[in-house]
């Protein structure tokens, strides 16, 4: 029984990381109506920034982590400005292909600079953060990940529902034209969304690389796809949906690894997604899309 709880808690922690990444996908989809497939690779770049700061430049954690977050924010906003904004009125397919292109670009830039070999990432969490509950040992990374994800999700929910910028984001996601008539600057709102999504990616990058202490140019790809799955699972465009989807996915993945097969765990995750979408095509909390008359 105690091993079940430790698998469960590790799953919640992994799910917290997925949720942070999924929030970036879902917010950008809700507001810019596009799938930003480069999101996972922004995480990888954030990881390399933290890695460089800690291992190469010997900087303390309190400098390395903000550096990673700021680098992700800048990268996310620049990608939006340079690659996506010129395509604002293009077909969704053109935007999707551009996003995939940006994803490969980031991976190859990382390959050029850091090489293809995976490097060891020094965890940003000190060893004495681990907690023992009876016979269950919870690693410091798990504790920090769960606390950080919960705090960020609460803050984000408050921001979206109780600030003027948050309300503007909701308005733009529902009706861009009507939002403009209210005086909302749509371009600025989209930039803000990318900045927030990328900041969450920055946090996720440090947590992810600390939990699985390695980094390579492909580090962001799989978690990116899983988090995208989590966002669809929860109902793409829905913020609470991404949170729930991320956590559920992390738990399913970890429990299948522990009790079924570690090779099959990814397949099980995607099978669950397919089943959920068959039963509820809009995802768990997805909104019914009303056709405009």
């Amino acid at each position: 029984m105690s091993s079940f709880f430790s698998y469960l808690i590790a799953g919640i922690s992994l799910g917290g990381i997925y949720a942070l990444i999924a929030l970036g996908y879902t917010m950008v989809y809700g507001i810019a109506k596009m799938l930003n497939f480069a999101h996972g690779d922004v995480i990888m770049i954030g990881g390399y920034v933290a890695f460089t700061a800690i291992s190469t430049m010997q900087q303390p954690v309190w400098i390395a982590v903000p550096c990673a977050i700021i680098a992700c924010i800048l990268l996310g906003v620049v990608i939006e400005k340079v690659a996506y904004k010129p395509l604002r009125s293009a077909t969704p397919l053109a935007v999707l292909i551009t996003a995939i292109g940006v994803s490969y670009l980031l991976q190859n830039v990382a390959l050029l600079i850091f090489g293809s070999q995976a490097r060891n990432f020094t965890s940003v969490v000190p060893d004495d953060f681990s907690v023992s509950l009876g016979s269950i040992n919870i690693s410091g990374e798990t504790v920090v990940t769960i606390l950080a994800s919960v705090a960020i999700m609460v803050a984000l929910t408050l921001f979206v529902n109780h600030t003027k910028s948050g309300k503007a984001m909701q308005a733009v996601s529902e009706d861009r034209g009507a939002a403009q008539l209210m005086g909302i600057n749509v371009n600025r709102t989209i930039s803000l969304t990318f900045a927030i999504g990328s900041a969450l990616a920055g946090v996720a990058s440090v947590l992810l690389c600390s939990t699985y202490p390695q980094i390579s140019p492909y580090t962001g790809a799989m978690p990116g796809i899983k988090a995208f799955t989590a966002a669809v699972f929860g109902g793409i465009g829905s913020i609470p949906g991404a949170m729930i989807g991320g956590v559920v996915l992390g738990v399913i993945e970890n429990l299948s690894k522990a009790y079924i097969s570690s090779e099959l765990s990814d397949a099980i995750v995607f099978a669950v997604l397919i089943i959920v979408l068959l039963v509820k095509p809009t995802g768990l909390l997805g909104k019914k899309i009303n056709e405009k008359v």
Binding site: K167, Q170, D175, Q180, L181, M182, G183, I184
Partner: peptide
């Protein structure tokens, strides 16, 4: 002048089909 600045000049537009924010 960009669309989002026009309301600041004192002009409001009730669009066709209402276009209220349904989820709010």
């Amino acid at each position: 002048i960009p669309a989002h600045k026009i309301v600041y000049l004192g002009m409001a537009h009730v669009p066709e089909g209402r276009r209220i924010f349904q989820q709010l």
